[in-house]
């Protein structure tokens, strides 16, 4: 019975640690029990609960490719108690891992469609998993638009990756910073003003978003104006998560549990409450 205990983490080994930016790092993980690693399957946009020994568990998105069977990548921003501790881990260290949880991006549904990926804030991991996925299967998707907005241009990370993505066929990469440092070559101002440069067919597009809810709200309004259906607009949400299995109640969003009904929702499912203070 306790084999199926959904609360219990399993040991995972850090097979690589990559420093992405000063306060951002990637842990490449593998379960130490081959049986568990073998059974483990996930989809872009799903997340795991990572356990730091003696400190606690946190929800972190999976950014590696679902078909790279043997590795599980997590890109983590250093913020508080748990992430600060995880930042000190090295290759060869061990942590606890359980998952995957939740519903991910509609990658199957997005096939053959134009795709617009919009992120705001700092290194938004859930959308990165979708970009990576499309990059590996570029021919299966229509025109690709990647939009990233940051508060300050110094917050912009992963310049290399954006440069790489810009080289993909039929792909537009647009960047904006609310405040730009000297020599910031891209747009200064909110991401929304970049939207007129997007190239997509509103009848045949899939929009994927993550970031501050105000920005997402503005994006959704814009997309609705362009006649994009709310069913084709997807966003990944964040709420406090303790259990990730729909029991602890912390991630409730109206009648939804973000951990199991989300974290990715189509806009029509959550529209009524979206950006309402207190939910």
């Amino acid at each position: 019975m306790f084999d199926m205990n959904p609360y219990l983490p399993h040991e995972a080994l850090i097979i690589e640690r990559i420093q992405e930016a000063p306060e951002l790092f990637t842990l490449r993980l593998e379960f130490t029990e081959p049986e568990i690693q073998h059974r483990y399957k996930f989809e872009p946009g799903q997340f795991n609960m990572l356990y730091l020994y003696g400190v606690g568990e946190i929800a972190i998105s999976i950014v590696s490719d679902p078909e790279d069977g043997n590795i599980i990548d997590h890109t983590i921003r250093v913020l508080g108690r748990v992430t600060r501790g995880m930042n000190k881990l090295k290759k060869g260290d061990r942590i606890g891992l359980r998952g995957p949880y939740g519903r991910g991006w509609p990658m199957q549904e997005a096939r053959q469609k134009d795709v617009v990926l919009i992120t705001g804030g700092l290194g938004c991991a859930p959308v990165v998993s979708a970009i990576n996925y499309i990059q590996q299967r570029r021919a299966q998707f229509g025109r690709l638009n990647i939009v990233q907005g940051v508060k300050h241009s110094d917050d912009f990370i992963w310049k290399d990756r954006y440069d790489q993505w810009r080289e993909l066929p039929d792909t537009k990469v647009l960047l904006a910073a609310d405040v730009g440092a000297e020599l910031w070559p891209w747009h200064i101002g909110p991401v929304t003003v970049l939207f007129d440069q997007l190239e997509f067919d509103p009848q045949n597009v899939c929009v994927m978003m993550c970031g501050p809810e105000g920005m997402i709200r503005a994006t959704c309004d814009h997309m609705l104006e362009k006649q994009v259906l709310p069913e084709q607009m997807f966003l990944s949400m964040e709420r406090n998560m303790q259990c990730a299995i729909g029991h602890c109640g912390h991630c409730q969003y109206g009648d939804k549990f973000v951990c199991k009904d989300g974290p990715v929702f189509s806009y029509d499912k959550i529209r009524d409450l979206f950006a309402v203070k207190g939910f």
Partner: peptide
């Protein structure tokens, strides 16, 4: 719910 132990080699068991 559960407990974990860490041995001298850093292995964690749950």
């Amino acid at each position: 719910l559960w407990s974990s132990t860490r041995n001298a080699d850093g292995n964690i068991s749950f």
